[in-house]
């Protein structure tokens, strides 16, 4: 009740909260991160547009490792299990997370899926996010690093158009570089320039899942990360 005059009107009360609206997700992500650290598994959140070549890069990764690295994968997809099936065929134990209409994975979805995937014995767990350059960037999943796949066919200014995504990237894989001879208008320098305007520590590797170009550098990057991460 209003105490000033006792009129019976309700009192207005300001309540200061100052809390992130993602705090629930961030708590779940912290929990996932503890799981990954406990099992010494390096979790990689792989993001990118639909058709940027995320699944193909993982297939090429498995082929290049040829059984010498232990991999597992979660694959976010709106409606199908196709990506997880492809990864499974490539020799990566995989599970699909069907998100329905949701445009991104979140930490709780990943946590639930971890119960059904044999990931604990792997060195690397790839979390292939839903193909989307906006929403997945916002949700921490508990990963060690964010990797973004950007195909040479997507346009050189993609990083400038989606700064939120590229700011979060620890590494950008510039995919489908085998197509460059057919794309005289695509200027790799322009892509690099766009990345340097959106990533504070611009890091990228041009790769081709078809020819295998750059996959060795990608594997070295992962290996280097694993060494540092374990320290």
């Amino acid at each position: 009740m209003c105490e000033t005059c006792g009129c019976g009107d309700p009192e207005l009360m300001p309540v200061e909260v100052h809390e992130s609206l993602l705090s629930e997700n961030d708590r779940a992500a912290g929990h996932n991160r503890e799981h990954f650290a406990g099992q010494e598994v390096l979790a990689v959140n792989l993001m990118g547009s639909p058709g940027s070549g995320k699944t193909a890069v993982l297939e090429a990764t498995a082929a290049a490792l040829d059984g010498s690295g232990r991999l597992s994968a979660l694959s976010g997809d709106l409606a199908t299990d196709h990506d997880a099936d492809r990864l499974q065929k490539a020799g990566i134990p995989s599970l699909s997370i069907t998100t329905g209409s949701a445009c991104h994975l979140d930490a709780q979805l990943v946590h639930r899926a971890l119960h059904d995937l044999e990931w604990k014995e792997s060195d690397l767990l790839f979390i292939e996010n839903v193909g989307n350059l906006v929403c997945p960037a916002i949700y921490d999943l508990g990963q060690a690093v964010n990797v973004v796949a950007l195909a040479v066919t997507e346009g050189e200014d993609k990083p400038l158009k989606y700064p939120v995504m590229f700011r979060k990237a620890d590494l950008v894989l510039i995919t489908k570089v085998d197509l460059l001879p057919h794309l005289p208008q695509v200027d790799m320098k322009a892509i690099e320039d766009a990345l340097s305007h959106t990533m504070p520590e611009s890091a990228f590797i041009p790769v081709s899942a078809v020819t295998g170009e750059g996959i060795d550098r990608w594997l070295e990057w992962l290996e280097e990360l694993r060494r540092h991460h374990g320290e």
Partner: peptide, 27 residues
């Protein structure tokens, strides 16, 4: 996003927040 003075990478001081700051309610 790299310092022109000392060549160190930039860091985002603010601009990535999604914060519930305050609620005004009737009690």
């Amino acid at each position: 996003l790299c310092c022109s003075v000392c060549s160190q990478p930039a860091s985002l001081a603010e601009g990535d927040e999604i914060i519930l700051e305050r609620i005004e309610m009737e009690v």
